[in-house]
Write a protein that binds this DNA or RNA. Structure first.
Lengths: 357, 357
DNA sequence: ATGAAAGCGCTAACAC
DNA sequence: GTGTTAGCGCTTTCAT
């Protein structure tokens, strides 16, 4: 009975204040209908008076699972993952969960540890965006521990999880078709040499489309190994001896690098070389030229991934599905039509675009 | 004794496997030195054999506080907050905490709720980056609930917390000096009309410096109210009738908008109008022109904020301090020297920069 | 040096 | 309908 001077009211404090038992308070709080209205009222009052809030973690200690969704992702610094996280956070909350995130910084070790932490936390489910290298063991750990989970953005082979990604192949083929239609016959594909499935898919889908629709197009592929410095040198060397009419950058940092390398070498885009990027960013509309890109359907990926996860959490069985979300092709200024160029080309007029008003 | 078929070993399972009591296991696990080496060994074995990992949440249920740091921030989508979060996550882990984040989406209501959630979770401490409007009640709630906390990036009046922000005033004054020195005498300051202390500080520090060093400079101020659309129109209208020699954008989206508005109106930057931005972003080095900016010291802010928080968690008392971290002025191409321009101006050569090789 | 016992704040079974 | 009892997985006196 002695009012132990703790700063925070517990369910027992509420119970005695309301003149009922802790169990009844618990029932009221989680909305069980079998409580006498008068008592519901009394409990409500007591809660208000004591400014009581229950401890969700202690609460879920009794159940097998906490009302928490884990999200393990490679990096927080990019617009893509920031936006994805933001969507997932909202979705989780709407479903009554809290989202707890951990970023692996593209480290396989950290990915493992973070998945393990999610397991320790007894999360109800985990969404994993694997590290680029594909050698991360996150998915394997999830499988071993029989965790409920979904994979997004980057797919890992041999896992047993539902998977939601952008439809890289279709998007890449679409870019190929656009370039062909715009008259391009020599294109550079700029990617990463990591064994990244996404990059590989983008390359092969592009090539397949070219093979099918325009076999005479020549397609060069440049794969950067390490940090951006390498990429710059690689691209610089390439541009010393080659003049493709278009570059298709397969990842966002590549697009940035191409743009600045064009500047450094006084290459005019799109007059001299066109540019198409994979992965949109807000600033790509403000540059000169604004950049034509494949925009990933971030909101859809988040929604689908979360829906699948929830359904698995609720016990839905069945084979894992591999879901592809269509990308959006954003035609902007950096992709020029080669045929049209020769008709409308204005020397020395370096900045096109609509005239004032 | 009946091995209840649960999927996960508990501390009792380890105890019986090792032939000791749960209390002893607990002691071994948290490194108490008063355990017989032989038993330590037995426990270690059992842990390994059962692949035991303790539940950090259940563990901290007994203590008053969990090993969790909360971070409430306005948005995850920007490079600034993404990077800040990333730093804090690492720092928290190094100190043995997990970072749990919640993004308020600039909503005062959400800010409140998130702070309250952190309280419910019994976090050891909370870092709050308040919503722009300053009307958020997050800090007030933290104070009422006697939470341990630190404020970053945006300061709120009348709080009792340590505060760590970029030194907006010094940075802004430095920009003023640079513009003056470069010969500019008519500058537009572009900000947000929200009652945002940061923006206000940037404006007043700029004006004070001008007053002091170059009173004849005319300084216009444009404050955008709502979404970016407004900003575009506002800026457009202004540029119809005014030709400042430089624009100082006080926030990142503003910088982007200025850049694209320049393009839309065929204004050459920096030949016609110079541009300086507050808040750096990676892409600002790849644009033409690359953008001169004030870069906020994100890593330092994170370190200082975390250090202060830890010290408060450890019971350090004393008046709240308000700490300012110096910004980095990144001189790039978008700020032109007006005097030099007239000597070296090359008509029709729209892309300056160093020639190839 | 160790284990029994008593919780942390809450929920769930089961009497009443 | 409601209260009692028995934990969830762990820590922490406190005897021994």
């Amino acid at each position: 009975m002695a009012a132990k001077d703790k700063s925070r009211a517990s369910i027992h404090d509420v119970a005695s204040r309301a003149g009922v038992s802790a169990a009844t308070v618990s029932k009221v709080l989680r909305g069980t209908k079998t409580v006498k209205p008068a008592n519901v009222e009394k409990v409500r009052m007591a809660v208000k008076e004591l400014d009581y809030r229950m401890d969700p973690l202690a609460s879920s200690l009794r159940r097998a699972r906490r009302q928490i969704i884990g999200f393990v992702l490679p990096e927080l610094e990019s617009e893509f993952f920031g936006t994805l996280t933001s969507h997932l956070e909202i979705l989780a909350e709407q479903a009554g969960y809290s989202l707890v995130i951990g970023s692996s910084h593209e480290s396989e070790d950290r990915e493992r540890q973070l998945i393990e932490r999610m397991h320790d936390w007894r999360v109800a489910g985990t969404i994993l965006a694997p590290v680029r290298s594909e050698r991360g063991q996150g998915a394997a750990v999830m499988k071993n521990r029989a965790m409920v989970g979904v994979l997004v953005d980057r797919v890992v082979a041999n896992n047993n999880f539902d998977t939601v990604t952008a439809d890289n192949a279709h998007a890449s083929a679409k870019v190929a078709r656009s370039l062909i239609k715009a008259g391009h016959r020599h294109v550079l594909l700029l990617g990463l040499s990591d064994v990244s499935k996404n990059i590989r898919t983008r390359i092969s889908a592009f090539k397949e489309q070219v093979e099918k629709s325009c076999p005479e197009m020549s397609v060069d592929v440049l794969l950067a190994g390490g940090p951006m410095y390498d990429l710059r040198i690689l691209l610089g060397d390439y541009l010393e001896r080659n003049r493709p009419s278009a570059v298709f950058s397969l990842f966002q940092k590549g697009t940035m690098t191409v743009l600045s390398e064009f500047r450094r070498r006084s290459i005019n885009c799109p007059e001299d070389i066109s540019l198409v990027g994979f992965d949109d960013a807000e600033w790509m509309q403000a540059t000169y030229p604004s950049i034509t890109v494949v925009a990933q359907p971030i909101a859809q990926i988040a929604h689908q991934a979360f829906a699948r996860l929830l359904s698995r959490i609720e016990g839905h069985a069945g084979y894992p599905v591999c879901q592809l979300e269509p990308c959006d092709f954003q035609m902007r200024e950096s992709l020029a039509n080669i045929g049209a160029m020769q008709l409308s080309h204005t020397p020395n007029k370096r900045r096109g675009g609509s005239p004032p008003q």
